[in-house]
Simulated assay, not measured.
Amino acid sequence: MDDAVLKTATETAWTVYRARHPDVEVSDSRRCLLERHLVRRREERESDAEELASFGIAYLHRLSSDEC
């Protein structure tokens, strides 16, 4: 998988999450956590951008506010 797939997945997941949570700033620390999570997922198994984005969205929804 190339970096373009990872970037697309990250952008998609972050855009969807922020659309559902308009109070979250663009530079929120959750974005960094999301990126790290998706890099690990990519290393664990081959995924396309859509599947990776869905993993990312689910991950963001599981984060508690004190983890951020």
Rank of each mutant, 00 (worst) to 15 (best):
S27T: 09
T12I: 07
T8D: 13
A9Q: 06
T8G: 07
P22V: 07
V24Y: 12
L34Q: 01
W14C: 14
D3M: 05
I57F: 07
S64R: 15
R42L: 13
A4M: 12
S54D: 15
Y59C: 00
T15C: 11
R45P: 00
D3T: 05
A49P: 03
R40Q: 11
V39Y: 02
R42W: 06
H21E: 09
T8A: 15
L6H: 04
M1I: 03
L60E: 04
I57W: 10
T10S: 07
E67V: 02
V39D: 05
H61Y: 13
R20M: 14
T10R: 04
D66L: 06
A9F: 00
E51D: 06
S65M: 14
A49T: 00
K7F: 06
A19W: 01
A4I: 01
C32L: 14
T10A: 07
F55E: 13
Y17D: 08
E25Y: 11
D48Q: 06
H21L: 05
V39M: 05
E11N: 12
L33H: 09
L63T: 07
E67I: 02
C68V: 10
D28F: 13
E51S: 13
T15G: 08
H21G: 07
L38S: 06
A58L: 10
L34M: 06
T12N: 14
L34W: 00
E51W: 02
L34Y: 02
V16P: 01
A19P: 07
C68S: 12
H37I: 00
T10Y: 04
G56N: 07
D2C: 05
D66N: 09
D28G: 10
S54A: 11
V16I: 10
V24I: 15
R62T: 05
P22G: 12
H37T: 08
R62F: 08
A19T: 02
D23M: 05
A58M: 02
L6D: 04
R30P: 01
V39S: 12
A19V: 00
